[in-house]
Amino acid sequence: MSHAARLLVAALRDPTSVATLGADDWTALLTAARAERLIGTLAHRLDTRAVPPGVARILADAAEGAAQERRAALWEAEMARRALAPLGVPVVLLKGTAFVAAGLDAGQGRSIGDLDILVPRADLPAVEAALLDAGWEWVKDDAYDDAYYRRWMHELPPLIHRDRDRMIDVHHTILPPTARPTPDAAALLADAVPLGNGLSILSPADMIVHAAVHLFGDGDLAGGLRNLWDIDRLLREYDGTDFWAALAARAGHHQLRREVGRAVRLAHDLYATPIPPNWRVRRGADALYRRRLVARDGWGRQPYPFTRLGFYVRSHWLRMPPAMLARHLWVKARRAR
């Protein structure tokens, strides 16, 4: 584990661990926290009266930045709600926006970029038309990308709003149809929890399942510490006698038992998340994931290029069959040059 990542994980897990840090350690910690998009969370966790004044200023900036992102995310959700309300289709908020809209601990100080929503697949054309009508526009003008998204992805190609410059990702399920596990999208929608304003969030178990998919399925595990922190907060908030059985059942139902199990173990490993004994079955590959998650140095860089490449290929492996993966990586590599 790199020193900076160790400091970051320790500070999140036990905020009093920062009491003895000198300027160089603070610099490494704050830089790593920014790079992992966890600085708003850190600002919320730490007692800013007990840190050096220069650090307190940086954390105050981060707290204000997170508050602004929260405001913007909630407003963006409201804009989508208004655009889609006439359709009468269920709209489920996902990830960061869902956390802040529901007032969950996982939303405290969290950085939030795009708006992610889940809608029924059958309603995608109507949703797309309504969003385009309300000022969202296509981001990708590349024909391969567009066709790829529409044919193979679990979401529409990303849309951006022409006035507010904010992106929306419209999902119809939580993994691409090409992936071997096939989550039950209808069940995600059926069990969603209404927020009372026409929008919903996933049920507690589904929220963890989705967070685990997000952790392992997106790119090369970049931003993994933040996604794992989400899981830690959600597990602590939903912890209870019935919850763990429900989570196990739900993970099995979505064919994601292995991913959810690993996410839970990693959260326990890094953030000391309390988990039941029967969830603590160690797997050999856990150490590799752990190594990848804590690869962030005091300058915000990610060492271990080969580990990263491995995880990039692996994340795609989760998403698509080998021949298709080969073709996809070939097109991407040719374009990158």
Binding site: G22, W26, T27, L30, T31, P52, G54, W299, G300
Partner: peptide, 16 residues
Amino acid sequence: KAEVPDLTVRLYPERP
């Protein structure tokens, strides 16, 4: 000196 910088800039090779 013994101060935490507000902002970090990195200059690095795009490929090794």
